[in-house]
Amino acid sequence: MKDTPLSNCERDFLLKAIEEKKRLDGRQTYDYRNIKLRFGADYGCCIVDLGKTRVMAQVSCELVTPKESRPNEGILFFNLELSPMASPAFELGRSSELLVKLNRQLERCLRNSHCIDTESLCVVSGEKVWQIRVDVHMLNHDGNLMDATSIAAIAALSHFKRPDVGVQGDQVTVYSPEERNPIALSIYHMPICVSLSFFQQGTYLLVDPCEREERVMDGLLMITMNKHREICSIQSSGGIMLLKEQAMTEITDLIMRALENDKKTRKEGGKCGFAEYMPLARITVNTTDDTSVDMTGPVVVISDSEDEEDVVILHPETL
């Protein structure tokens, strides 16, 4: 299914509004949309809402043999999934340019920034290490998938707990959660990605573009940084030339914002609630308690005459 194209009128309207420093959803230039984090019942499951954009991340682990070049380091693996749930334009099982871009950026954001201690994932040097796999599913695409993905992935990684292992001689025992408490990953810092979109050849700049804004933008700059004001990665796309000063001033401005996000993430992470969050006040939501089905009463076995015949036929065969 194709995506609905954006009409020229809409395009002009959006650009005109941006020129007048107005955004469709009433935000200011540097305003982020509301971020909401929810953790699932499994360890390492996190759903992030960034405005209407919704992303789910699930972390899992497996014991594998390490790479020969790095025998005592665990492996981080990222798998992004542009599910057709998010947008009708996403096709199942086809790697698009967007998917490759997002996957690469997430790897740069989380693996290349060395935010996770991979050496602590080693069980037996050169033989057994943990492979941590991060699956990210897009559930609803309303722009800025990258920021939502990075928040979801790091939140899920911080929430995740791997089973404890014991090494006795050559034997490696993996303990179930009932036997020994699972262990959280050691995370040094939380890199968070912030996207800036440029309009009119870089004259105007917006933070956290929504889907409509993404369609009319000329370029995108993705900066990953942590709360220690360290930049983990910068990626610019869309083929626009950026002035050095422009980028730098924006970064200093944005550090505060990224910090704020980080704090928010941490605060939510600290709560570590895992129940299903249902906004009960909405009329689109309904819940019930356990209901019991009466099993004691005479169970009516619906038997048509045909069934009887079937039974009769069945018998000789079994005999």
Binding site: A41, D42, Y43, P177, E276, V285, N286, T287, V293
Partner: peptide
């Protein structure tokens, strides 16, 4: 492997349907 935080819940009666919710 995904480690579940939900331990073996209290034994559910055979005839009950667990609580529903929908949005």
């Amino acid at each position: 492997e995904v480690c579940s935080a939900v331990d073996v819940k209290c034994i559910k009666s055979n005839s009950t349907l667990r609580e529903f919710g929908c949005e």
